[in-house]
Each structure stands twice: as C-alpha cells, then as structure tokens.
Amino acid sequence: MQSRSMTLDDLKPGQKGTISSISGVGPLVQRLMALGLLEGSEIAMLRKALGGDPVEVEVMGYALSLRRDEARRIEVVTGDAV
C-alpha cells in the first residue's frame, strides 16, 4: 500500500487517515489520547470552518473539533492519497 505522511490538518473534508504519531507531551496530548486519538486510531476529516480553522474530525464514531495548530501535531497516513 502506498502511503504518504502528513498532518491531520492536511486532510481534505471527507478524507480518512490513520494516526501515525502525535508530537509533543503535556496536557494537550494527554487529553487527545484520553479522547481516543492514539497511534493507530482511524480518523476522518469531516469539515473545516471558514479559513480552515478550527476543524471537525471523526474518531471512534464521534465528532470532535480542534484548532489547526493542534491538528498539526497529529501525523496521519492515508492509504488513498498518492
């Protein structure tokens, strides 16, 4: 499978990916992990607000909103995008 590494905010609305890593430590990362954003979790970009920030994603079947700066810390791989 061809894959390409990018960060979560690069996903286009409707596009899916798998989290490959989350950079940084501390409270934010701990929160993300409690919410189920772990290495290997599937994640889908649902939509972006005006100007592309914040973004709305789907993880484990629920919708979560986060800012672009936070989305940038999450690396994802997609199978389809090449």
């Binding site: 929160r31 629920y62 919708a63 909103s65 800012r67 700066d69 936070e70």
Partner: peptide
C-alpha cells in the same frame, strides 16, 4: 499557555 479548543460536537 494558549488554551486548547478541544470540544466534542455531540449529535
């Protein structure tokens, strides 16, 4: 620190 904006959008 800039607070995070991490909110669930419940159905």
């Amino acid at each position: 620190p800039t607070p995070t904006f991490l909110i669930e959008l419940p159905p």
